[in-house]
Amino acid sequence: MKIKEGFVLREAAGSFVVMNIGGNIDFNGMITLNETGALIWRAIEEGKDAEDIAKQIAEIYEVDEATALRDVNLFIDKMNGAGILE
């Protein structure tokens, strides 16, 4: 699981915007992430897999790992749907 080249995260206006370096950003429908999303993004950049990320989320937010894993997988699905992952 890797983030496609060219997709980077930038902070603006209190949230995180997904940039597409060299491509097009459509501000009419841009993708923004909250802090948790940004955390997951950074973890993927570091090469972590879904289980590792879920463990991290579970620790920080004090939820059980199963819930965290379900949410992390949902998020990864969304990222896939947006064509951000490879």
Partner: peptide, 28 residues
């Protein structure tokens, strides 16, 4: 995931996007 934005907040991103050779689309 989508929300409206102020140009002045997005300006650094627009600038970086354009400098990288990319493009930015928005409603006028």
């Amino acid at each position: 995931m989508n929300k409206s934005f102020a140009l002045k907040d997005m300006f650094p991103i627009i600038k970086e996007q354009l400098d990288s050779g990319g493009s930015a689309t928005f409603a006028i």
